[in-house]
Nucleic acid binder design. Structure first.
Lengths: 209, 209, 209, 209
DNA sequence: AATGAATGAGCTTTCATTCAT
DNA sequence: TATGAATGAAAGCTCATTCAT
């Protein structure tokens, strides 16, 4: 749709994000989104062809934002190991700020036939390429295995997702670092790596406080 | 949910599983499920109160099945390290056989107010307790860190989910083992461990197995 | 649509006919049709895919009915001249009974892309073929010109339509006969042909009584 | 309807005419008309109160144009028979030039409550009076029946309409003359009169013209 | 006066649920 | 008990109309 006023387009997206994060797709009514965004229902359809496209735009927007945040740094020069730490930190922070995105990202599905579905595929591919690229940089610096960087990327994202999704906010400090350690060094020899975390906020929250 | 003929109840569940795996909740119509199961639409309502309950029953059934498969072995005696390897292997196989479950498991959401929602929470808790327990066994045997077994459990499940979900089948041989390695030893020193993935079972002896 | 209960299908069609005759397409709401037919709105969609198809079915049904009434007699043996008289009579009567059809017939248009649009074309072609055939029979019996039977058919239907549509009911007796005379002998020498009508009801109604 | 710039008013009317001729009332959107006329949507409402009035103005405009073309000649002195021939010729030509009018004219319906509906009734009455008047002139000159000039008028218009509407352009030569013959002399003795249709103007002298 | 983005009433359509058979 | 036609509440979507610019 020809977005006339970009600001309003984002206003709608933001309202939708909050609702789609709390409720399932079919539980969110266009009326609700409109009311939440403070616009008329018809306006939604000026900016997005239909409910599905609004939903896709939302997911794409989220991925895009995260991608753009990370891209500049990862693509640039620098120590790959530090880049990885920063990257994880960044995602954790992004989720802290936009917790609903965590819910949205996992609802990406083989939906209909919308044209903008292709756009989503693109951003997603772009995103995974970025993560894979980061891991390749590590491998090039001999900091990790050069085998299956793609699987490693999936694993990394899986860890982050799995932990953040089921750990209630606010998350403890050093969570990002803990994730880094697990990904790089594994849980088997995690004792020494976790030492600095065991005294921090993680242990508290994880043990039910 | 006065299940009259249990066989028919499962028939319905199975039909529903296939549809819910391929399409989103709101895209699956009760008509479709009925047609797929070869029963009349009204019959669905003899076995499940409504669409939501059918959906929950489906997820619970899947989790339960996986839980029961794993429980006997994990709870029993034996080498914790071997148990973990077997456990991962088991999940990978389960997903190989019931790929739709992979989709279903991540759709567990803060749904409505259904009474059987509690049942789902229970199975899920039960399931995570099982995984956490396994990791504790490892820690007791001094095979891994004793800190944050719950976070480690989330990470493990996250890795598995992340990889299986986005890796098209057929999966490479020894995928389960690769996951085990990553989880236990991390990606940093993964080079030697990964050599066998996709090339057959070469590196098994290298790690003393 | 798989018409389950044909009786109900006609019930709906009949209700729709009355409404479409009095109001324009966009002025008739599906709610109205449902209420008029004494069924629920959803039922309409069991029998007809959408509003357009319901509308087309209606027109087709009307044409079909008129066609079938006339076909048997025209196709059979007999005096062509008498057949023509009977035919006109028949249409006039049909319109008397189903005045709404008069309105519907002229709304046949190059509408959407519905598949049943083809069906409509068929019935219409069938119908005009019937009239043309009748005129050819007259020509074969040397009762009229053999030239342009198709144009003559169009003219005949045009006369009937033009008169009936703008003449308020109840129509005078012998109207059909007057039409026959005009079509066959023209208005120039109409005086003697109309003699029997001038004393009937036509003159009364036409002159404003 | 405070028409500010009459030229623009006609521009809109012309754009609307083309669209309403090809599509049904509810299929034509104000957006379409505006786009077609090259003006903004809001402008339409400066010239016409609402969609209905725009539609009525269009029909009235068409009828008015046809009326004005014909009026001067019919009302003036001259041979009634020749006037009739000219009249039919004129309508055929008018339709040839503005085929959409043929579609519009038949969509005059018991529409809403618009005030300008009365105006339409007026033009229509005016129009039929003109035709009826012409036929009365013929009767006065003893060239046709003096009975039911109103019915004859309806029949004449019906013939023209019926033929033009369903005969694809380009129409055969002398179509107007053929219509004249049918109306005046009927189809029964049409054989000699019709011979020239499509074969050129042969039979003119035969009828003393 | 002209514009066209915003509006929202009201329409079509869907589909979970019911219930007479 | 199983059925599937009927239901109608609820949703998505449209588009004539308005009005700030």
């Amino acid at each position: 749709m020809r977005t006339c006023d970009p600001k309003r387009g984002l206003l709608i997206l933001d309202a939708a994000a909050q609702l789609f994060a709390k409720h399932r797709y079919h539980e969110v009514r266009m009326d609700d989104i409109a009311a939440h965004a403070g616009v008329a229902k018809g306006t939604l359809y000026r900016y997005y062809k239909d409910k599905e496209e609004l939903y896709l735009a939302l997911t794409i927007h989220g991925l895009q934002g995260l991608y753009e945040e990370a891209h500049g740094q990862i693509a640039g020069p620098g120590d790959p190991d530090q880049k990885l730490r920063d990257f994880i930190e960044r995602i954790v922070r992004y989720y802290e700020q936009y917790p609903y995105f965590l819910e949205l990202i996992q609802r990406i599905e083989s939906s209909g036939s919308s044209t903008s579905l292709a756009a989503l595929q693109d951003v997603r591919a772009q995103w995974f390429e970025l993560v894979t690229d980061l891991i390749k940089q590590l491998a090039d610096a001999d900091l990790c295995s050069a085998e299956h960087p793609d699987l490693a990327a999936l694993a990394l994202v899986g860890i982050i997702r799995g932990i953040l999704r089921f750990t209630p906010q606010p998350w403890p400090d050093h969570l990002a670092e803990w994730i880094y350690d697990l990904f790089m060094h594994g849980h088997a020899r995690g004792e020494q790596n976790l030492s600095h975390v065991g005294n921090g906020a993680i242990a508290q929250s994880a043990r039910g406080k």
